[in-house]
Nucleic acid binder design. Sequence first.
DNA 1: GCAAGGTC
Length: 674
Amino acid sequence: MSKDICSRGCIAIIAEKPRAAAKIANALSYGRARKVSIYGIPIWVFNQKGREYVVIPSAGHLFSIDTDKPGIPVFEYMWVPRYEVEKGYKHLRKFFSAFSEILPKALEYINACDYDIEGSVIGYMIVKRWGNVSRMKRMKFSSLVDEELRRSFKNLEPPDLHMVEAGLARHEMDWIWGINVSRALMLLFRKIFSEHKILSAGRVQTPTLFEVVRNTIERSTFVPRPLYNVNIYVNLASGEYKLEQGEEHFSKRSDAVSYAKKIREIGYVLVTNVDRRLISYKPPHPYNLGDIQRDAYSIYKISPAKTLQILEDLYLDSLISYPRTNSQKLPSTIDHKDIIKRIASMPKYSSAALKLLKKAQLIPNNGPMEDPAHPAIYPTGEVPKRLSDIHGKIYDLVVRRYLATFLEPLIVESKMVELDALGRRYFLHGIRIYSKGWLDIYPFYNIREKEIPQIMIGDRLKVSRVKIAIAYTRPEPPYNKATLLKWMESQGIGTEATRAEIIETLYKRGYVKGSEATRLGLMVYSAIEKYFSDLSKVGLTRRFEEMLDKIRRGELKREHIIKETKIVVGEAIKRFLKGIEDLDPREIRFLGIGLGGCPICKDPPDPNSIYKFCRIHEIAYRRLIETYNSWREDNIGWKEYLEKVSRLKITGSKVKEVIAYLDKISENRAGSYT
DNA sequence: GCAAGGTC
Ligand SMILES: [Zn+2]
């Protein structure tokens, strides 16, 4: 059977993945392609204008870079089949068998992988291995929709060799940086602890680690400052209401006290404005991957990596569309009516779905984010048979968000009363849901309704109570996997497919635990900061992008930037090797290892510290001193300050250690006088 | 064994 395929020569169309192959074959053959399985891989065959076409899927990259050279620096590498060098890729073998069966018989080749540099590399490596690159063409499409695929098939482009070169350069530069610095870290670790440990560094993971370290240091050395609010309560017909603050806090207690006294004396606040309006909130955008990873985390505490894995399962079960997308747009080429009709058969969605089916037009509230090949995530309409608890939760989010984006806006009635209390502004804010709209089916926003009675401009509201409340400045929040993902997105590092996994790598290596950088994470940070600081910055990705763009435009040669990368990395490795050559494992100052160091943690002292504190304890100590100025203005003595700050939960852990140490030495001193 | 990037 499969022997007949391409027996008289054919045109081989290479797709990035089986799903895409099916869509491409169907679109180009108008549904007449014949599906055949060889070595367990589905391929599609069809004839057109007397020629035979065979669509064969890959499964992403079939080849990867590897080396057989140990040690550093390492610049010799080659492209090899993935299943030979990476664990867990045995399943790729059958794709190799399929390609090696068909491609040598083909006369021409069309690379129909996603139109980006990675897709160019995937198709190119396959044609290079089993075909002939000089007889290769490129299909350029921006989505896997029938018309778009047919259009690009009619307008085949010449081979995209510049894009291939850019893709190869990306792989090689990442490999050179990543492997060399990872090995350097392991070498250093072995030298210090005489122990082997798998460590790693890379263009994406290292800036992410640095961000966690920065946040950890910022939070652990945080010292709160006091703030004072004057809370005013008023009596209205329906009871007592607390007014909302409309001005900055008082930073001095005495100012708050004298202001509160005046308010008590005058006894009322004046209504200066009443603003009643209906506020309309558009439905949420269609999901891209990051959106649903955040939702799954905030609603169910499911990690981004787990969410992606579940989305992949749902995708392979034909329940949802392609999940690794950055798009927040749903094109009108999708038959939404049909999908919603089928969703309506599931009881928990039927009322929202039926509401939508009554609409004359279905228009999603598309968001700004785009993707070069795929639309936003949507349900296919296929009704799931049985889903595990967690699969059910993720599927439910996809369906709800999908229905919501077509629904009517949420309308909230807002009543904002503005008050003047001796020149300071306060508010009373009433809120009521006027029309739930999309919130019914997507109820993940908490709107706290609050009724307030009829109030007119010029009314004097009687003050019932005035209270002074102390508040504190707050540290920046700790990271979790979802907010770290968001940070990576905001910096433009990593891709939809890799961000969650790279975050897991930081945990797996032991660099991060919970929401904090570990001691190991701090050591890796210091070593990279000292020897490979380029790799710690997001700017390296920007430089990569600029260089890759130039290669794509034919303005720069891959060989040129690879040579340059080798020089830069080679010199850094040279400095590193020299730096650790005559290293005494007991005293590595930049890593915080040494004798007679910080009296709190034994790390080497900061040369400018009078107490011989280490770098981080010294930062904590200085912030403690600095922040005291704010407390002293409130006539709070040093001792009382330390006592108060050490009892506050938001005070950084390193600050508390410094306070405990200062306490201890002052006790000792006091003891020595008696 | 180390990256980041595809996808199963
Ligand atoms: Zn210390």
